[in-house]
Design a protein around this nucleic acid. Sequence first.
DNA 1: ACCAATTTAGTTGTGCACAACTTAATTGTG
DNA 2: CACAATTAAGTTGTGCACAACTAAATTGGT
Lengths: 151, 151
Amino acid sequence: MTDTEWLRLDRQICFSLHAASRAFNGVYRVILKDLGLTYPQYLVMLVLWEQGDLPVKALGEHLRLDSGTLSPLVKRLEGIGLVRRERSAQDERSVRVRLTEEGVALRERALEVPRRIMGATGFDLTEIAELRERLDRLTTALDAAALAEGR
Amino acid sequence: MTDTEWLRLDRQICFSLHAASRAFNGVYRVILKDLGLTYPQYLVMLVLWEQGDLPVKALGEHLRLDSGTLSPLVKRLEGIGLVRRERSAQDERSVRVRLTEEGVALRERALEVPRRIMGATGFDLTEIAELRERLDRLTTALDAAALAEGR
DNA sequence: ACCAATTTAGTTGTGCACAACTTAATTGTG
DNA sequence: CACAATTAAGTTGTGCACAACTAAATTGGT
């Protein structure tokens, strides 16, 4: 394989992944507009609906996001009335993110989202599972490599 | 499948894709730091190395990015001396992005990037090709769906 | 030839990701 | 106990993505 071919291959891979990520984001953007949520905000709400109230720290561990991303995002969710932030009494450093009535209620309207997404992908459950398995394997390898490369 | 299970599945898929995208970005960030490029800037350079000088419009078509993203990005590339922007004489609306000497020279140093990325993924060429095929299929389906959903 | 529609870049504003930093509270060790 | 190290959250600054818009040049229809 020539150098030129390697670069072409890299362009193809980069582009495919970049484009897929943005396309996914685009479909969620359209579908989530009804709920008034962005894609990352929806991710946070999914975790809260599933896990219940959590400190910002725990939320970050579930989503692999740091406070630099989460702090303003959670403030926006508070701004639209879906959550409240409450500083812990036991540990004054910690801030618990609590779903409001509206936040809990929004879950009902979110129930249709997964089915619409599945329809949009045109993939069946098996293909989704395979893709997910491959992506997770990729992520694990990449995270390890980023560490090894000395992030 | 219950509603709860659907939401959990959606969280898993969203998370996998989101995480993979960010992990990929992270590895490229580390590897591209030596070249002084961000991941999207590297994508632009890859296209220019492959296709030669292009108007901003054509660049956007190759990368599916609009001028809102490309204009400032190309200006930054110009700022670090890798490209020059030249307004076309035939069509004064169009701006051609031209590689400078330094821009051309950087290609030599970029040749090692693809191999390092391949190493980081731990995937072989076949797996990469399969993943790419699947991602492209996904992107096509998602773009069509975003249109249908009325983007 | 004229003018409305289109096209190409660019600008503005919002939100996310992340690095680097700050602040305040807690923990651990001598 | 005292104080250095750690931890949680937040802030600041840079860059990207995208929607909505503007400005200027070109095209096309009449």
